[in-house]
């Protein structure tokens, strides 16, 4: 259900934006289809796909058995032979089961075949904690796919970005993993009626600032924006850069921002160790070294299995307060 804001712009939720992107691409290109567990009548566990089966039928919105490895492989085979599958993996934690097909098959087939085969598929799944879903339904594992040459990885933060990036992912001739923060499905934002596509590999500056750069992905963009508000109140101007895709990574925009502000914190909901934050921090250290006035800091999920107990789970994720505290430290403001 769309509404309008004060400027008369159409406002929809993140989940609706994803559904719109899928519906538009399904309408536009008959080779696009979806396969996954409980995606048709049930519309997925998060109801993001509700109604798609009514328009496109069960042949294009295919309910599958609980066989993540199998449906990912089916996606690979279908993509190699001319289709554009969107494989729906209910929770990001379940990508463990898709790993061979994504890493050893989808990522390598184009290269290994000397460029003869393409694998234009999308693996759509979730990330994010704080839903009280415990250790096997709360992880943010997008760094795993980001590590593998041959894969592209999308981590949208707004309804606008989600829609434009999903359309780009479906049209891309490569395997693309698309991670949606499950806590963000009800997040609202401006999404125009008219069609648009956001190219993969282009960062977006979500807020401009001059004193410190907060590079944040997916769910952490909102944490960074809230922190920026808090910092503004004490006279620190924070710039929030959203890479939008972890690969391709828009290194230039990130480095330029860090050069401008001379300080940077990288915030991502994946585990901190060996994670997305490490990669981006190294990009900044490398590209903006002579401009930095402080070490680049990283803030990711605490390096523990996500605990169920709410008081414990909330400790595991960066918050506006923890980001603000880190920014104050880096800028020397006490």
């Amino acid at each position: 259900m769309s509404t309008s804001n004060s400027s008369g712009e159409r406002i929809i939720t993140f989940g609706e934006a994803v559904r719109e992107a899928l519906a538009e691409e399904l309408r536009r290109d008959e080779t696009v289809f979806m396969i996954g567990e409980d995606i048709a009548e049930a519309g997925t566990a998060f109801k993001v796909l509700t109604g798609l089966v009514d328009e496109f039928g069960p042949e294009r919105i295919m309910d599958s058995p609980i066989s993540e490895a199998g449906i990912t492989g089916i996606g690979v085979g279908a993509a190699m032979t001319g289709m554009r599958p969107v494989v729906d993996i209910m929770f990001g934690d379940f990508i463990t089961l898709t790993m061979d097909q994504m890493v050893n098959q989808a990522a390598k087939i184009h290269y290994m075949s000397g460029g003869k085969f393409k694998v234009p598929m999308v693996l759509r799944t979730t990330l994010g904690a704080t839903r009280r879903s415990a250790a096997q339904h709360s992880q943010s594992l997008h760094a795993w796919f980001s590590h593998v040459p041959g894969l592209k990885v999308v981590v949208p933060s707004t309804p606008y970005d989600a829609k434009g990036l999903m359309k780009a992912a479906i049209r891309d001739d490569n395997p693309v993993a698309f991670f949606e923060d499950k806590m963000m499905y009800q997040t609202k934002g401006h999404v125009p009626e008219e069609e648009y596509v956001i190219p993969l590999g282009v960062a977006d500056i979500k807020r401009e600032g001059t004193d410190i750069t907060l590079v944040a992905t997916s769910s952490m963009v909102y944490v960074a924006l809230d922190a920026a508000e808090m910092l503004d109140e004490i006279g620190i101007s924070a710039e929030v850069v959203d890479p939008r895709t972890t690969f391709p990574l828009d290194k230039q925009t990130i480095i330029e921002s860090a050069k401008k502000t001379s300080r940077a914190i990288v915030i991502d909901e994946g585990y901190e160790r060996y994670g997305v934050t490490a990669e981006i921090a190294s990009v900044i250290a490398d590209g903006a070294f002579y401009y930095l006035d402080a070490p680049v800091k990283r803030m990711g999920a605490m390096d523990v299995p996500i605990p169920f107990s709410p008081v414990l789970e909330d400790l595991t994720v960066p918050t506006p307060q923890s980001v603000t505290d880190m920014a104050k430290m880096l800028t020397g403001v006490v």
Binding site: A69, G70, I71, T72, G73, I74, G75, V76, G77, A78, A79, M80, T81, G82, M83, P85, D100, Q101, N104, Q105, I109, M112, S113, G114, K116, F117
Partner: peptide, 27 residues
């Protein structure tokens, strides 16, 4: 591997070719 003869690939991961064949059959 060679697309021109219909060979979708020789796979060095045991069993991985089966779901891929199913995907091609779905196409």
């Amino acid at each position: 591997t060679d697309a021109s003869v219909g060979l979708l690939g020789a796979n060095a991961i045991v069993g991985a070719g089966l779901p891929i064949a199913v995907g091609a059959a779905l196409t």
